[in-house]
Nucleic acid binder design. Structure first.
Ligand SMILES: NC(=O)c1ccc[n+]([C@@H]2O[C@H](COP(=O)([O-])OP(=O)(O)OC[C@H]3O[C@@H](n4cnc5c(N)ncnc54)[C@H](O)[C@@H]3O)[C@@H](O)[C@H]2O)c1
Ligand SMILES: NC(=O)c1ccc[n+]([C@@H]2O[C@H](COP(=O)([O-])OP(=O)(O)OC[C@H]3O[C@@H](n4cnc5c(N)ncnc54)[C@H](O)[C@@H]3O)[C@@H](O)[C@H]2O)c1
Lengths: 211, 211
DNA sequence: TTTTTTATGTGATTTAATTCACTTTAATAA
DNA sequence: TTATTAAAGTGAATTAAATCACATAAAAAA
């Protein structure tokens, strides 16, 4: 494969493949074909082979993919052969639920610092041991804790200003839960999570195919 | 337009247009061109016109779109010209944060009932007044409360069984927060929310464009 | 060894989505 | 009333993504 531009959808599928492969590994399976993996992930087998082919040759013809190896390879492709330190901005309802959640650490994501603007919250210690910093200490703490990803869980009205502060602090990856379209420079990558868009899509389907 | 098959991406964009339009309406704007709306939403103007053209003609040539009318039209397209009653399954960390969250009601989504399997939680009253039911009462309560959408916020291990119960109860729209691939019949529409996939995508971008 | 089997890797094809570029229509100015 | 301007609507072109179908290579069987 020459100079392929890699579709974003392919990257997202790699995450899905990893989930399935890890489950299979737990069950003791050693090797799997693109056909069986495809069935488990609900995609086309050729899709899996092509997605992987963007990055190299990881299978054995006539045999399939060695699961242990493939997991390692995909993790390396995605940059998951390390841990990522995350800053949580906005320790409210959602922010604290996310920090409390144990699943992120399993995937190598570590909440390394938490920030808020509410004076009642600053200095408080969370169940997992983190102390809540003032948002104005962001740049300092980001450097100290080697943070590369920021999660925005503030009200929408604060989202853009928080994003600006993150970028000044040198954070180039942002996961935004606020229902606001934030503007960032080219160097920064933003992923938005908006549950209401998903609900809207469900409502559409229910409405069009008899309630 | 004859018999267009509507791309799923178009439906999701309609939600984004609504958000922007509602913001504009609050600011007192009455009319907007596809060009200005496109800039605000970060898409191509022709995209907006084509997305809308799947459903009819809503603009005025030479003028633009009357915001109030367009909001109403899009809401009707998406089936948002009504309220939707939702059941929350799994009132843990995430489930209770979602129920507590005030933004859903603004969009017409009402948490009408909550369910869990933990005996300590059954019968407890949530801040918003809902009583937590046992999951085995799902079918009965779904009927009583006219619920059409189910949100799964249980551990992944329970997700498939919960989905089965929802479908038996006649719920055909599911928003699934558990990191599990659930199997449902044709008639049921599932949307998955998986934050770690978004984080993986951020990790990939940070890794490829020098950390 | 040689043959058969199996499943990857990939160029070619098909399908889908997006964008362009032009036509149409409404409003405004001359 | 007529010309001009602005922006929606849309068929055509482009671009991107997904799938097919077969050549290729490894392993197993003969
Ligand atoms: N809670 C949910 O289930 C849910 C669901 C979907 C979307 N969201 C979105 O997630 C965001 C957070 O929701 P929530 O329910 O946790 O809200 P919340 O009000 O409980 O928490 C927001 C927190 O952000 C803090 N904050 C405000 N401005 C800040 C700033 N400039 N810097 C740092 N911290 C700041 C507040 O002090 C508060 O602690 C909102 O944008 C909401 O729309 C939440
Ligand atoms: N909390 C988060 O921030 C977060 C983030 C991403 C994904 N998730 C996912 O969301 C789900 C919920 O996460 P959580 O942190 O709220 O977990 P949690 O353990 O706090 O809550 C799960 C709840 O589900 C209930 N439950 C278990 N089996 C059930 C069943 N069969 N029927 C009804 N209720 C049942 C449990 O009693 C518990 O109250 C998990 O799958 C998790 O992976 C959570």
């Amino acid at each position: 494969m020459k100079f392929p531009k890699i579709p974003m959808a392919a990257i997202n599928r790699l995450s899905i493949y990893i989930r399935a492969l890890e489950e299979l590994e737990e069950q003791g399976t050693k090797v799997i074909s693109s056909e069986r993996l495809a069935k488990q992930c609900g995609v086309n087998p050729a899709q899996i082979r092509k997605d992987l082919a963007y990055f190299g040759e990881f299978g054995v013809r006539g045999v399939g993919y060695r699961i242990e190896d493939l997991i390692r390879e995909i993790k390396e492709i995605l940059g998951l052969d390390r841990t990522w330190n995350i800053a949580m901005i906005g320790v409210g309802n959602l922010g604290s639920a996310l920090i409390r959640h144990g699943n992120f650490i399993k995937h190598g994501y570590v909440f390394a610092a938490a920030f808020d603007i509410d004076p009642h919250k600053i200095g408080k210690r969370l169940p997992n041991g983190l102390v809540i910093h003032h948002i104005d200490d962001l740049e300092k703490v980001v450097k100290e804790c080697d943070i590369h990803i920021g999660v925005i869980a503030t009200p929408a009205s604060a989202a853009q200003s928080v994003a600006n502060q993150l970028i000044i602090a040198g954070v180039n990856g942002i996961l935004n839960f606020a229902p606001a379209q934030i503007q960032v420079p080219e160097c920064c990558h933003v992923e938005n999570v908006d549950f209401t868009i998903k609900l809207d899509s469900i409502a559409y389907h229910l409405s069009t195919t008899g309630t």
